[in-house]
């Protein structure tokens, strides 16, 4: 039998109030081991209060070749940003 431990992606919340952030990857045979390994590998220096692990193959990623159609159309929608609107200087707190 020659099956290798699959790859997992590790997300760690550094402290409550912050989002989970991608920390890196590791190998593990199952989800319990993935969590344990993530704890041992990525939080040795007190880096986290919560861990998510997900097997890498379950992540669906966008294709960089489609970056043009996916992301460029948002570039000129400047009316979504507050700076698009002109207000007199007298108006404060808006």
């Amino acid at each position: 039998m020659k099956k290798n431990w699959p790859l997992w992606e590790v997300f760690v919340r550094s402290k409550n109030g912050l989002e989970h952030r991608h920390f890196g990857s590791l190998h593990a045979a199952d989800e319990e081991m993935a969590l344990e390994n993530a704890r041992d590998v990525y939080t040795r220096r007190n880096e986290g209060v919560s861990i998510w692990v997900v097997e890498s193959k379950h992540i669906t990623a966008s294709n960089p070749e489609h970056n043009g159609e996916l992301f460029e159309p948002a570039q000129d929608k400047i009316y979504r940003h507050p700076t698009f609107y002109e207000l007199p200087d007298e108006v404060k707190h808006m």
Binding site: M1, K3, N4, W5, A29, D30, M33
Partner: peptide, 13 residues
Amino acid sequence: VRDAAVAYAEKKQ
């Protein structure tokens, strides 16, 4: 050891 962990994970699944 690595093989055992894979086999166990499969059984569990």
